[in-house]
Design a protein around this nucleic acid. Structure first.
Lengths: 263, 263
DNA sequence: CATCCAAGAGTTGTCCGATGACTTGCGGGG
DNA sequence: CCCCGCAAGTCATCGGACAACTCTTGGATG
């Protein structure tokens, strides 16, 4: 049971205290966290603004500086605030892309099983972005796509394909026009190359199939064909999924919706 | 420039120290954060396991307890670890749904513009989940869907439609079969009702349209028609998007991909 | 013998005080 | 006018101490 009462002070600021219930139902860090979130949600702290200095917040939220700092760190991990040494702590711009980007440091820690679950999201979003790109991408962007493809096809060294592959997909995501989706795909991408699928026995075959996928995507976008682009992109991600599945300890549970309606 | 050197101790543990470059390029909290992430990524700390006590980690990572705690709080905010008062700090199960769920406390803080960007993700995922549900949902689940619809249609009080609406969409998301997508949709849903669209002048009309949308989705799922289900779900989310747009200060920038290829 | 309770060790939560490191703006000197 | 150094403001880090909570262990009790 959590019960809070707010005490309005004369200067308009608010203090939070826990109700008189025995035992501290609300920890100090929680109090600070709720208080800070409340300040942002209610507009008392505006995006981009510098927050009051720590001692001031400690006084208002009625927590020690250590506890306040732990709360601030939590919000910083979620990219809601941004502390700058020596200058102050600033409320972030609170863009959707920023918030989603906070996942980037955690997908690295997911076990392969969890990563494959995320791949269904990736497949759907990547194909959506490709469809949008087919309608919107500039001619110059399409040329960049083919540049990346040629660079990838020119080598069989995984290390050298990394950069152009990144650029290829980033270009499509950007052309999709939605910063949130772009950020989400950005989160997934780096992890894909952490597994060296090209080193598998069928490595050469996989490499060739991947190159073909890229060409199909670029072709569909160049032809301004959204459906074909979506299909090609979904197929590409699905392929990657299948290759990654080789690294699973054993083929146990059936894949969760591995084949979408577009594939 | 960041340069780290690792010092292997006799007992196998590792200490991190910053290189001798002038000025501390790596903060203490960063050091702790990297160290902890490294321990988890390399499998030295396994999911579900209790971590070593704080003093021990302080010694190994060469940071003070305060800095270590700030790092732990950051990982806790991202749902990577879970501190339990008096017991210890445990590595989470690292499920994809957990990680995505960490966003739930931040979408509340997004301005409406950012929220609408997320709605494109929601639209795509919701329609994907609906398509999957059309193929997989049990007969009992479909009955639940219609129960929710009747409950919603029976009232015009927004407060009373909240719960059945939640159940309706949750049921579909669950039937989709992917925990990550389910968690992602769960993140978006509560925020939808924070705006009281039914209180707009066209409130009654919106309410009716929303009820019709729900029926169309349930119908398509009951008919085992994935394409129709996807279309209906996308349309429903798109409607919500349009209604929310009324709350924008002015109609300035054009919507980012408001109409997907499915709509 | 089973059950409950109390005590203790182990661990995280909180606070306080002090000092270091960095940024920023101001003012003096060239 | 420009540049540099100084000083105030702010976050970063450390160390120590104590409180609060959990869990196990052992004994008392029925």
């Amino acid at each position: 049971m959590t019960l809070l009462i707010s005490i309005e002070k004369s200067d308009g600021s608010v203090r939070w205290r826990q109700s008189t219930g025995r035992g501290s139902t609300v920890s100090a860090v929680d109090r600070a966290l709720r208080g800070l979130r409340h300040m942002i949600a209610t507009g008392r702290l505006v995006a981009g603004q510098r927050m009051p200095p720590e001692p001031e917040l400690c006084d208002e939220l009625d927590v020690s500086r250590g506890s306040l700092r732990e709360a601030i760190r939590m919000l910083a991990a979620l990219r809601v605030v941004e502390p700058r040494h020596g200058s102050g702590t600033y409320v972030s711009q609170l863009r959707s892309a920023d918030i989603i980007g906070s996942l980037s440091h955690t997908v690295d820690l997911l076990p392969l099983t969890g990563l494959l679950e995320l791949y269904e999201i990736r497949r759907v979003l990547e194909s959506h972005a490709a469809a949008q790109a087919a309608a919107r991408m500039t001619e110059s962007g399409i040329r960049t796509l083919y540049d990346c493809i040629e660079e990838m096809e020119a080598t069989s060294d995984p290390a050298e394909t990394f950069a152009p592959n990144q650029r290829f997909h980033a270009e499509i995501a950007k052309a999709g026009g939605n910063p949130a989706i772009e950020a989400m795909l950005e989160v997934f991408r780096p992890r894909s190359h952490s597994y060296q699928v090209y080193d598998l026995p069928e490595g050469a075959q996989i490499k060739r199939a991947s190159d073909d996928d890229h060409r199909a995507i670029a072709e569909a976008i160049a032809n301004r064909d959204p459906v074909a682009a979506a299909t090609a992109a979904a197929a590409h991600v699905a392929h990657t999924e299948q290759w990654l599945r080789r690294y699973l300890p054993d083929d146990g549970v059936p894949p969760s919706g591995a084949a979408g309606i577009l594939a």
